[in-house]
Each structure stands twice: as C-alpha cells, then as structure tokens.
Design a protein around this nucleic acid. Structure first.
Lengths: 226, 226
DNA sequence: TCGTCATTCAATAGAATTGTTGAATGGCAG
DNA sequence: CTGCCATTCAACAATTCTATTGAATGACGA
C-alpha cells in the first residue's frame, strides 16, 4: 500500500486497468458499450443481470478509466472512454487467441471446423461489396443496428435468419457480422445459413472495429436508443 | 462455472489473460522478462521477492499463456510468450495514461514538470545518432545491457551516472533509455544529468519496444545471462 | 412539495487471490 | 546411490472480489 515508490505506484495504476478487464461480465459489458452508449438498465437487460450488479461493475470500469458516464435527466449513459479501450481489449484477445489452447478448443467445438469458418477481412468485404458479389447482413438486434452499421448491410437479427433466408438471392454469398471478432451471433448465423443451403461466411471484425478503422458508418434516421 | 455457453466460455478465457495482467508485481515481472529470459531465482533477486512467490506468479502467467518456460538443466528459464504480450501491456498502459489522472499525478510529482521531460522518439533518435549529435546511454544494469542494446549505446547503470558524467562530451546532448516507456531509471538518469549541468532527455521507448519495432539490436560477446 | 423512477450506496456472506511457510519434485554432480 | 539445488506444490491466514439485498440519492413531473 505504500505509494512512496513511483515505480510501484505506476505498476499499480496499470494493474487497476488490467484488473478491471479481468472479469468475463465486464468484458461483455465493454463489447456492448462498444456498440454505443447505454443506460445502466439497458445494459442490465441486454446481459440478463440485476441492475445493481451492472451498476457496480460499471463503477469498477469507471474507476479504471475504461468507461465514462454522462448524465441525461434521470438516466446515466455509459460509453467507452475512447478507442484505446478497444485496442486494449483486442490486445488481450490476441494473447488469448495465440496462447490459450482452450480458446481454440471452444471455437472448434462449438462452431464446426475452423477451416469452414474462414472469415472475410474488412478490405476483402469492401471489394466484394463494390463488385456486388455478396449480400451483407448485420445480425445484431435492431437497436444496435440503428446506432450504426456498415453501409449497405441489411439488418437480420439472429431470430429472423430462417425467415429471411427464404427470400435471399441464392446467387450471392452471404457475409454476416455482429459485435466483434468473436461475437457468437455471426458464427451461428453462418451455421444456420449453411444448413439452409446458402453460401455464407463471417466478416472477421465487428462494427466497433469497422468504426475504429475510420470506415464509413451508416445510421438509422432516429439517433439514440435508450 | 458452466461452460455450456460458448460466448461466456470465450469471455472467461479472455478474462484469464487480463486477470493475469492485473497485478503490479506480475506487470513488473513482464517488464523484466521483456529484457530477456530469466530463471526463477534471477527474477526473484531482481525484484527483491521470495522465490516461491515469484514461482507462483510465474505459474499464473504461464496458465494465461503470457510467458513460456524452457527447462535447462536444473534451471527453468521463463520468457514472454511472444510480441503480442508486449502489445497487450502497451495497450493497458495506454488506457491508464489516457484516463487515469493518478498516472499523470505520479509522473508530475516525482519527475519534475512534464514539459521538461519531453522525450525523443525512436525515429528522432536514429536521426540524431546518424548525425552524431547525441550521446546515447543505456541506464539498465550491465546484465540486461549485455542481452541486447541499441547499437552505439554506452552502458551507464544508474549508480554510475555521476562518475560517468565527469568525462562526458559536454557538447552533445545525452539521451537515456532503459526498460520501457515508464521505466523509472531513465527519468532519474535525466534528472541527475541535468542537475550536473548536462543537457539530457529520455528516449520515449525502452529496449523491448525498440526490438519489437524490428530495429537492429547489438549484443555483448557473451550470450546468456543467468 | 411529493411521488416516481434510474441509479448508486452499504452491508452481507461466499468465493477467489495473496504472501508465507515448509515440504515435495526432478535433474545434476559426485 | 546420495546429497544438493532450483523449482514447484500444499496449506494456512489475511485480504480482496463477487453477487445479492435493501436502503439512500438525485432528478423529473405533477
């Protein structure tokens, strides 16, 4: 607890940030906040957690400088402090991908073989879209889609995949994306589409990465979802 | 604990990595391992910690895929798993720098005013070195210097700064670097040199960042320090 | 001013992490 | 085989983290 040694003091500060990232629920909260600002309750509903619990974790993230809060009437909207948070998340993910056999096992176990899941990069997607070779679907819930999506993408939430696929252009490959590189929804969407006989792949990244790369973002008429 | 939900399972894996980074001592261990491989005892001595404690933390880092171990006789040499660990560390540091007022306070409080400490970038240093305008000193202990240093740098451990400054070329500015961007030794070296009347600045990064950037590294004749 | 509602705080029990101690393991030298 | 040494493991108390509960805060609308 002695703060006399500046070296130690600095490491303690860095550790505060890392520790705040060191909880599954908080990571999930970050991924949701990366889609756009959210009130405490909205987040709680999304994650299926008690409000008090979410509030507490939000405080922890705030103390670590990971999220920032903005009061709006009786709501408090939380959002990521800035893009450096996303790169920290990505870097942590990178270490896990590279060195934790468990990550690989989970992916292989739940999402068919990895080879079949070869994903499309952002650059590749832009080329395919320009040439009109693919149908791009955003499988996130409608409210997240409204807050910003890849230009030209159609919003097809996971639950509507089957219904939508009936009217899909079978001549084009379908590319699906959602919240991030490991967001489960796009894996499931691709699996579902394939079982329905359509050619489908994931986009490697999700909306937050797309936005962070400075690529254009299309928004729904209405601005803010609660 | 239920591993049924793949989404949760993935977040848990990512959290393992972040949690492992969430301890000041482990961060310090990482910074030391970034200088080169070390045995358990060597690390323990460097950090002034009991061997068992270091061993335990090394296990934690190993479980998170952050360090890798290699047995050599009765020694076990630990080193960083790969460069992705350094970028994760850097990203966490970035969040802390940007958003934790405490970090700024520590730096200002202990290392004079920030403006006086304006540091030299790697690119700028290379230019200055090419033109012979600066004297570059590596203020790390000799064993770390031996494992790799910036070409042209002179090894002047912190304790020898004063003695060395006596014979220094007063016509050139001195640039000091050590283990990383916030490594305290180079701050102290610069402060000491200035109080002795020499012009001095820090290099922004340390040896690990220099190496990770793919820049040339000079090594001492002897290879491995224990 | 009063009630309502979103959010935060405080308090609790249960779980996980930390540092320390001393014993166990596994390779080396004689 | 035996003793030695680097490292790891096991077990403990102390601390910290977690989720839950219910009460407190602070802003809005009547």
């Amino acid at each position: 607890m002695s703060i006399r040694n500046p070296k130690q003091a600095l490491y303690e500060q860095f550790a505060i940030v890392a520790k705040a990232l060191g909880h599954p629920l908080r990571l999930e909260m970050i991924e949701h906040l990366a889609q756009g600002a959210r009130s405490v309750e909205a987040l709680a509903v999304k994650l299926g957690q008690p409000v008090a619990n979410i509030s507490q974790h939000l405080q922890a993230l705030r103390r670590a400088g990971i999220v920032s809060a903005e009061r709006d009437g009786k709501f408090v909207h939380y959002s990521l402090a800035d893009a450096s948070v996303l790169s920290a998340f990505a870097a942590v993910r990178g270490v896990a991908e590279r060195h934790l056999a468990e990550v690989d096992r989970i992916v292989r176990g739940y999402f068919d073989a990895r080879d079949d899941m070869r994903s499309v990069t952002r650059d590749e997607l832009q080329r395919l879209m320009r040439d009109g070779l693919v149908t791009l679907i955003d499988v996130r819930p409608a409210d997240e889609f409204a807050l910003g999506h890849v230009p030209g993408a159609i919003n097809v939430p996971l639950s509507e995949i089957k219904a939508w696929s009936g009217g899909a252009d079978t001549g084009k490959e379908v590319v699906a994306y959602c919240r991030g590189p490991w967001c489960v929804m796009s894996f499931e969407a691709v699996a579902a589409l394939r079982s329905l006989g359509l050619a489908a792949r994931r986009m490697e990244d999700g909306m937050p990465e797309w936005k962070a790369a400075g690529l254009p973002v299309e928004m729904a008429a209405d601005g803010v979802a609660n």
